[in-house]
Write a protein that binds this DNA or RNA. Structure first.
Length: 690
DNA sequence: TTAACTGGAAAA
DNA sequence: TTTCCAGTTAAC
């Protein structure tokens, strides 16, 4: 865009306001003319840009050709953000390729503007976006929105930091950190030599996993390649961040989290894209980081549902990383104290090898006892009448307090107690509206939490018993109880909004809800106690047991080497047995068998379709379901506060072999519906829960 | 937003 | 059969 100098000089001679007005008008006209002229003259080389346009329409999910004006030719390189005219509107897009000619028969619109010459979309991520979109029956535009953070112009213009000089990684320290886990030394060696090993890793309790992961990354850097580490939440990422700083030296990695804010997020993204750093640690979005020379992908605690993206097309970070490992020829490490059936599947199929602690090592790290809280003992132990902590647990806590902090994990927080039948533990429901019953004030009958009805003569609908119990006591009550029982001992709570990350290594009782357990500075807890284990079980969820085991394992893993674990629950339960033997892999493999019989993932491919009744029905009619496929439902979803339209959900299921076929058919439905402008239906492939 | 396309009605 | 028009559709 150029304006001639003599013209400007002439305008300067006109008086004040008038001059400005005239200048403005003339400038506008001149600008338009200049733009037209500039657009008319096309780039000499490759005058066609293929652009991925950011549209919400599934049937337009492909590159469109635009003419490249000569003045933009230099900047309009593959990967840059552009503005283009599409159906009369200015929309954003990314240039994916430049070409000499177009397949399109009509006249090409010119690019409106190159937003910035920064090639934010790397070729690898451009290809990945197509694969992820395919796998989840979604669109590339949606995937790119997850993969590329919004632009922050000031950050982009700021000078780049100077890259850190290459450090050296100490293989001996790496092997020492991984001691007890086999065959970790071979895995590290393979990484350092540029190999692409793939492993599913079960960590021993008390393992400082951030340190071990940092060493795996160190080994990868040693081979000249980069790495991505993804963990469920900011707390995990902070620990990994610190460990990476220690092992790799400063300035060799970045931490990508949503908490950091848009400027920091874009700055770190650019540092990665510009190849100033090759190591990224972060939450689920980091799985898309455009790391150059990707050599290793790591996902920690892949059973945490935070790793599955809540925005379309709902990809799971583990799956994105495994796809990348395959596409980009990188090594992979799927680690945790627990194990998912998906990780088990990676082993079963031979895609990955196993790394696990040897038996003696695991046993020396942690001894678990199950405190008999069978119904019989609960009744006999007088302490349990007023508390849920059996005598055996009190003794264990007292002993452990002599040498360090003790962690009590208790499900859910607060006082608010829904009631259940004392005998069979069926939740107590209001006889009028089926709402949950709560304790009314002192000496009053229980009340309904929804309609307030006072239940004068409640009797259990299942067993007829008239006794009520408060199953959810919560952390506040537990903390209070601990204060009473152990006077003079510091009681710390961590839950809900007040989550502690770290506590000092001094005797204290720490009461925390699952996922909110603070880490101990130094070695770990002297003992970890899991209360009310039965509360996490028996939920009507597909993954209830798996999820409970994961949460317990993560808490028990915080013991110091040689520490004690105490589990209050029914010792006959297989989940608790798995904890006792620290055999989460065995549990996952058994669970996989159960899933196989029940035709559930990973033995089957599942997808859900959600939407209003009519649209959902219509979508199911359009769906060309593969042979042997079935539709379950649709069922009405409960709507909390539902002023809006009813929402229904159907589940479609096919044998795993027909998975790709199903996903293709779902994609087809989405394209068809978008082309016909029908009400959208949400499609979720491999939903994390049902 | 808008050019191109569709199909149906009127004119011949 | 041709022409005209209005509503629809695709979209570079």
């Amino acid at each position: 865009m150029t304006r001639s100098r003599p013209q400007e000089a002439a305008e300067l001679e006109l008086p004040g306001l008038v001059r400005d007005r005239v200048k403005e008008g003339k400038a506008k006209a001149a600008a338009t003319r200049a733009r037209k002229a500039a657009e008319a003259e096309l780039a000499e080389h490759a005058p066609v840009a293929q652009v991925l346009v950011d549209l919400p329409l599934a049937h337009l999910d492909r590159p469109f050709d635009y003419a490249v004006p000569a003045v933009m030719s230099e900047d309009a390189q593959p990967g840059v953000r552009v503005k283009v005219r599409f159906a009369g509107k200015d929309v954003d897009g990314f240039v994916v390729t430049r070409a000499a000619e177009s397949e399109h028969s009509g006249r090409l619109q010119p690019l409106r503007r190159v937003v910035s010459a920064e090639a934010v979309l790397s070729p690898a991520i451009a290809e990945l976006s197509a694969e992820v979109a395919n796998r989840y029956a979604g669109t590339r535009a949606d995937v790119l929105r997850l993969a590329i953070p919004p632009r922050h112009a000031t950050t982009e213009k700021a000078p780049s930091p100077v890259p850190a000089p290459p450090g050296r990684w100490d293989p001996a320290a790496g092997v020492a950190a991984w001691a007890g886990h086999e065959p970790a030394a071979a895995f590290l060696g393979h990484l350092a030599r540029g190999g692409v090993p793939r492993a599913v890793w079960h960590a021993a309790a008390g393992t400082d996993h951030p340190l071990l992961i940092a060493h795996a990354v160190g080994a990868t850097l040693e081979s000249g390649r980069g790495a991505i580490v993804v963990a469920p939440d900011g707390k995990d990422v902070a620990r990994l961040d610190a460990a990476l700083g220690e092992v790799l030296g400063l300035g060799r990695h970045v931490a990508l989290t949503a908490e950091a804010g848009p400027a920091a997020r874009y700055r770190d993204f650019l540092a990665v894209r510009r190849d100033l750093v090759r190591v990224v640690v972060g939450t689920r979005a980091a799985a898309f980081a455009p790391v150059h020379e990707l050599g290793l992908v790591v996902v920690w605690d892949d059973g945490d549902d935070l790793l599955s993206e809540p925005r379309a097309p709902y990809p799971h970070a583990r799956d994105v990383l495994m796809l990348r490992a395959e596409r980009e020829g990188a090594a992979a490490l799927v680690g945790g104290f627990a194990r998912t059936v998906e990780a088990d599947q990676l082993l079963r199929s031979g895609w990955a090898h196993e790394i696990r602690p040897d038996r003696d090592f695991a046993r020396r790290r942690l001894t678990v006892h199950i405190a008999g809280a069978s119904d019989f003992e609960l009744e006999r132990d007088p302490l349990t009448r007023t508390s849920r902590v059996p005598r055996e647990a009190h003794e264990a806590i007292r002993d452990a307090l002599a040498s360090g902090p003790v962690l009590l994990q208790t499900p859910r927080r607060g006082y608010a107690a829904a009631l259940a039948c004392e005998r069979c533990r069926t939740p107590a429901r209001c006889s009028i509206c089926q709402g949950p019953l709560r304790l009314g004030g002192s000496a009053r009958p229980p009340e309904c939490g929804w309609c307030g009805h006072r239940e004068e003569a409640w009797a259990c609908a299942v067993c007829g018993d008239r006794g009520l119990r408060a199953p959810v006591v919560g952390d506040a009550r537990t903390a209070e109880e601990m204060g009473r029982i152990f006077p003079g001992v510091r009681v710390i709570t961590s839950s809900g909004r007040r989550v502690l990350t770290e506590i000092p290594d001094r005797p204290a009782v720490v009461v925390a809800t699952p996922g909110a357990e603070p880490v101990v500075e130094g070695d770990g807890y002297a003992a970890v106690v899991l209360l009310d284990t039965w509360l996490l079980l028996g939920r009507p969820d597909l993954r209830a047991d798996e999820e409970a085991l994961r949460r317990w394992s993560n808490a028990l893993a915080l013991v110091r080497p040689g520490g004690r674990g105490l589990v209050v629950g029914d010792p006959a339960l297989p989940v608790l047995q798995a904890l006792l033997r620290w055999d989460q892999p065995g549990f996952a493999s058994r669970e996989a068998g159960v899933r196989q019989e029940a035709h559930l993932p990973p033995a089957a491919k599942l997808a859900t379709l959600t939407g209003e009744a009519g649209a959902l029905d219509d979508a199911l009619t359009l769906l060309r379901l593969p042979e042997a496929g079935e539709v379950l439902g649709p069922v009405l979803l409960d709507q909390n506060g539902g002023a809006t339209e009813e929402v229904w959900r159907a589940v479609v299921r096919v044998p795993t072999m027909a998975g790709p076929e199903l996903v293709a058919a779902l994609g087809e439905v989405q394209r068809l519906r978008s082309a016909r402008k029908l009400t959208p239906v949400r499609v979720q492939v491999d939903p994390p829960t049902l």
